[in-house]
């Protein structure tokens, strides 16, 4: 769980995990533990334009087929459906984001790719097995029956693999959704605007916390 104000420290920990993973993947010789893993990756590079607004698919080719996208759309929208306050996940580009994510050349993205691709295939297979149709063509209660099995706190043994996929897919969906202006508003994040002063929390907040 990452909750620092200073995003620098958040990413330090994440980065450690990834750099260690990358080093392990490359099987570096013993004398060269910490060197030059960056060379093995062709992403956006060490000096990308930070001001540009990037479009999904412009940096590396995407992965998902139409059918995979259909399944992904339905699953994302089951995880984050529309409600009175905000639209469903797919309406703010979450499926595009997940496609971008699993298509990226970085080690952790490459690690997620088979998880997502195989997980989406499993959903269709399972839908066929139980209901003789693709996941995206199922009725709501049929989809829910499958998702309940793979989102249980302790899934049955035959769903363990699918449950891992579901948890990761839910994290990607949430990370994709709540980092958009729509998703931020949904969490009641009201910052990222210039202000002339900072007065600290309003009285009703301090009161609730026993600080007034």
């Amino acid at each position: 769980m990452e909750t620092f104000n200073d995003s620098m420290r958040i990413d330090r920990r994440t980065a450690l995990k990834w750099v260690l993973a990358a080093s392990a993947a490359l099987q570096l010789p013993a004398t060269a533990l910490a060197q030059d893993t960056a060379k093995s990756v062709t992403g956006y590079g060490k000096d990308p334009n930070l001001l540009k607004v990037y479009q999904i698919g412009e940096l590396w080719p995407l992965t998902l087929s139409e059918q995979q996208r259909a399944t992904a759309t339905v699953l994302s929208d089951l995880i984050i459906p529309a409600d009175d306050e905000s639209p469903a996940a797919s309406k703010v580009g979450v499926v595009d984001f997940i496609d971008e994510w699993i298509s990226a050349p970085y080690p952790n993205n490459q690690q997620d790719k088979p998880v997502v691709v195989q997980g989406l295939a499993w959903l269709d297979q399972e839908a066929q097995r139980r209901f003789k149709n693709n996941f995206s063509a199922l009725m709501e209660k049929e989809r829910v029956a499958i998702c309940d099995d793979i989102s249980a706190a302790k899934p049955a043994a035959q769903f363990e693999q699918a449950a891992k996929f579901f948890a990761r897919y839910r994290a990607l969906t949430a990370g994709g959704y709540y980092t958009t202006p729509v998703g931020m508003k949904d969490l009641r994040y009201v910052g990222n605007v210039a202000m002339t002063k900072f007065d600290g929390p309003p009285p009703e907040v301090l009161k609730k916390l026993g600080l007034l």
């Binding site: 990413d11 330090r12 992403g43 940096l59 990226a104 994709g176």
Partner: peptide
């Protein structure tokens, strides 16, 4: 790209 999260290119 990638919701601005860390990558090997931009680790923070």
């Amino acid at each position: 790209p990638l919701r601005a999260t860390s990558t090997l290119d931009k680790e923070f």
